[in-house]
Design a protein around this nucleic acid. Structure first.
Lengths: 193, 193
DNA sequence: AGTTTTATTCAACACGGTTGAATACTGCGC
DNA sequence: GCGCAGTATTCAACCGTGTTGAATAAAACT
């Protein structure tokens, strides 16, 4: 942006990567609407127009700079292997383990991105639900799996995607404690007295 | 907006209500970011500045024009009055009653924008959670209320906001059946065997 | 009647993302 | 080596956004 002689610079400074890195940082800390292209440009020491040049649009910058992971398949594999008794706890741990590891910042702007939403939806409704149904078995397995997926979706939603304080403030251990009854009820279908 | 002689107009034309009505319509069809204040002003036949004057900010206009609570308030009042035994069912009905009535239009565009998410979050974490906690009482009332709110949030999320097929396809009666165990477990804290 | 309060328009501001032109470097074919 | 297409970069402007201050006219109050 400043005085850096017009035209192409010498050497091969990979500015596109620098922009992406700066953008990632800002998106994570300030969210999508709270991040301005000019701020990204300043952080990368570059003119604003260069962003549009490299990434096309702000949405493009978002998609390309932030390749966000949604679900960790290996954690699920382990969760769906042990005894039925602690299935609920293992499922809860595999959720908190993944998202909490990604840092508390991951959540805010994720909501903006429609592609991410669809990925999450497809995963919940497809693979996760089917595998849970297969694992628990018995009558009404699919119905109970649907309920379980909805509970897990509720956890993800209220803790990470659109975090409400009372849920976001819980420790992973608290998450277990709080969600275990609901998830077990969903999984095993019995209504507690 | 155009030529309508400056200064206060004659009579008592309740323009604030007219603005709110126009805003409601536009917000519902175009979403929050897709609705511009100038468009609202045009639809209401009014100057842009008048909106800031009456509602303070765009967010204020949104909050005040569109009182979208995620739970039907009158239904909630009734739900929080009867016997404890069927509280879960009444809560579920008050959710489906509101959202299913609003039609599938309500959900689509709503998902993207931050303002709606915040409104939803505030409501879930604030009023709803507190009132549920107050109603159920007993030890760990707030913790159980948190769990219950998360389950309801899961229902709203997986059925309306980012609808997954297996949950969206349920009839309201099915919603009861599927979610009752989890919600009751959340409310009463006992883990079913 | 006179003064304050309220409702309204107008004009401008600051800032957002995006675009077109100018410029300087790179990499290629000869 | 030289010329030339392509590419990376800055600059200056555009248009649309939400918001603000001044001007103005009716209403409400004393």
């Amino acid at each position: 942006m400043l005085n850096k002689t017009r035209g192409r610079p010498r050497g091969n400074p990979d500015t596109k990567a620098r922009i992406a890195r700066a953008a990632r940082e800002l998106f994570l800390t300030h969210g999508y609407p709270g991040t301005t292209l000019r701020a990204v440009a300043a952080a990368a020491g570059v003119d604003v127009a260069l962003i549009s040049y490299h990434f096309g649009s702000k949405q493009g910058l978002f998609s390309q700079s932030l390749n966000l992971l949604c679900v960790d398949p290996t954690a699920l594999d382990q969760a769906l292997r042990g005894n039925r008794e602690q299935l609920a706890d293992r499922l809860l741990d595999s959720v908190t383990g993944l998202w909490d590891a990604a840092g508390p910042a991951q959540s805010r702007m994720v909501v903006q991105d429609d592609a991410t939403m669809r990925a999450l939806r497809d995963y919940l409704d497809g693979e996760l639900r089917l595998r849970i149904a297969e694992f628990i078995g018995g009558p009404d397995a699919t119905r109970r799996a649907t309920a379980a997926v909805a509970v897990l979706g509720g956890l993800i939603f209220t803790r990470y995607l659109n975090p409400i304080r009372s849920v976001g403030a819980l420790s992973p251990a608290d998450v277990r404690r709080v969600f275990r009854p609901a998830l077990r009820a969903a999984l095993y279908g019995r209504t507690p007295a």
